[in-house]
């Protein structure tokens, strides 16, 4: 589902954010990307999402080689990936329901079908009762769950998460990871950037450790694969 073959990313200042990174993630695989600040975690996610172009190497996501995609094709590529952010990126002038419905609206889904999917997603994250609430009225954990509902509402094959538990306490972090595990169990590929070593060690999924843009460790999962 995600294949990086000697991918590198160099910014205009000459700084190497990623260097010769080769990684492959398959269906139903859950992998953490970890490392210090500036190690290249977010750059890796941005490359997979198509927000930035690799300076070298080959990057294939969902069967598409991103280097060959035109700017016109990139939105469709992004619609097939669910994205979760540390700061949730919710729109505070819309209700929880409307926030979750946004990807479906962009995809042009029929409103009735959209309504069913949004309710299913909110039910999955335990927030169906708060569909009319404003995101600002929710706790940090609830806001993150709204973000997850929005990420999965379009039934993506890949979910990217950038520090999804960064602002959450351990209990809420565990809840979020449990949700991710459910998606993994049905074949969704998850790539989660995190610097929370405790959480990573506790869950025991495959972990890619980056240091100054280089992959210094690729530890296999200690868990049963789905």
């Amino acid at each position: 589902m995600i294949t990086l073959d000697r991918v590198s990313k160099r910014y205009s200042g000459g700084q190497d954010a990623l260097a010769n990174l080769s990684v492959s993630l398959g269906r139903g695989e859950f992998a953490f990307v970890t490392g210090h600040s500036g190690a290249g975690k977010s750059t890796l996610l941005r490359l997979v999402l198509g927000l930035e172009k690799a300076s070298g190497g080959r990057l294939v996501v969902n069967g598409r080689e991103l280097g060959a995609l035109s700017a016109r094709d990139l939105p469709a590529h992004r619609r097939e990936i669910g994205t979760v952010f540390q700061d949730h990126q919710l729109l505070n002038d819309r209700s929880v329901f409307d926030n979750v419905a946004l990807p479906l609206e962009i995809s042009g889904l029929d409103p009735r079908e959209s309504q069913r999917r949004v309710r299913a997603a909110l039910d999955k994250v335990g927030l169906l009762a708060k569909e009319k609430a404003n995101p600002m009225a929710l706790s940090g954990g609830e806001q993150q769950r709204v973000g997850i509902a929005r990420a999965v509402v379009n039934t993506p094959r890949i979910i990217l998460a950038d520090e999804p538990t960064g602002n959450l306490d351990p209990e809420l972090s565990a809840e979020i990871m449990a949700l991710f595990a459910q998606f993994r169990s049905v074949g969704v590929c998850l790539l989660v950037a995190s610097h929370d070593r405790t959480l990573i060690d506790e869950l025991g999924y495959r972990t890619l450790t980056l240091e100054q843009g280089r992959l210094v460790d690729d530890s296999s999962s200690r868990r049963d694969k789905p």
Binding site: R27, R116, A121
Partner: peptide, 18 residues
């Protein structure tokens, strides 16, 4: 790489026509 489980639904995929 883990084997797929094609018979299982996406957790967000509603039942029925969706």
């Amino acid at each position: 790489m883990s084997p797929a489980q094609p018979e299982r639904r996406h957790p967000n995929q509603p039942t029925g026509s969706a």
